[in-house]
């Protein structure tokens, strides 16, 4: 398959995925568009190295996360993780099924958003991949560390977030 054809196919299959990652890191549409283009440029640049050893979605996530880390349009300190209330896997961060009261949920969400933006760049990357619904194995594959290490890190982030949101009243599982 020609490079251009492969590129077009990857784009048509993964466009939404890339756009979601870009939305995690940029609140305004212009920055999202810039990062989206930069991800596409990096996909094109790296396409010759794609050997098909990992799933194409994992490969695309790698390029997107690596681009977000080296995204020239923003400094690391300014980088924010933006989540939406409709983000499918949001509950996976809180692990709290009792959040039924709307107001409380909204307050929790705002607090969560603030706390997420206090996280380091790497922690933000881990959380964004988790929000995308990737398994621990897949996250490990993207970041380049082993699965137990990813589990430890995610657990630490969750504990840290829960502590902040509940004022340290929750029990560690």
């Amino acid at each position: 398959m020609k490079k251009e054809d492969l590129f077009n196919q990857i784009l048509s299959d993964n466009s939404d995925r890339i756009q979601r990652i870009c939305r995690y890191y940029n609140s305004n549409a212009e920055d999202q568009k810039d990062m989206y283009q930069e991800v596409l440029i990096n996909i094109w640049k790296s396409l010759d190295q794609f050997k098909g050893k990992s799933a194409i979605s994992t490969w695309v996530y790698r390029v997107a996360v690596n681009t977000s880390l080296s995204f020239t349009g923003k400094s690391y300190r300014e980088m924010q993780l933006i989540i939406n209330t409709d983000t499918q896997n949001l509950s996976s961060i809180l692990d709290n099924e009792d959040l039924e009261i709307k107001k409380k949920e909204e307050k929790q969400f705002n607090l969560l958003q603030n706390e997420l933006n206090m996280l380091s760049v790497i922690d933000k990357a881990l959380i964004s991949l988790m929000l995308e619904g990737l398994s621990m194995r897949e996250i490990a594959d993207v970041i380049g560390i082993n699965e137990p290490n990813v589990k430890v890190k995610i657990h630490r982030i969750k504990t840290q977030l829960k502590n902040k949101l509940t004022g340290g009243k929750h029990e560690l599982k």
Partner: peptide, 16 residues
Amino acid sequence: KNVDYSLPTLLMLKQA
């Protein structure tokens, strides 16, 4: 010519 953004993040950072 061989800039590769599809490497695992840790490896990419080490190369950078």
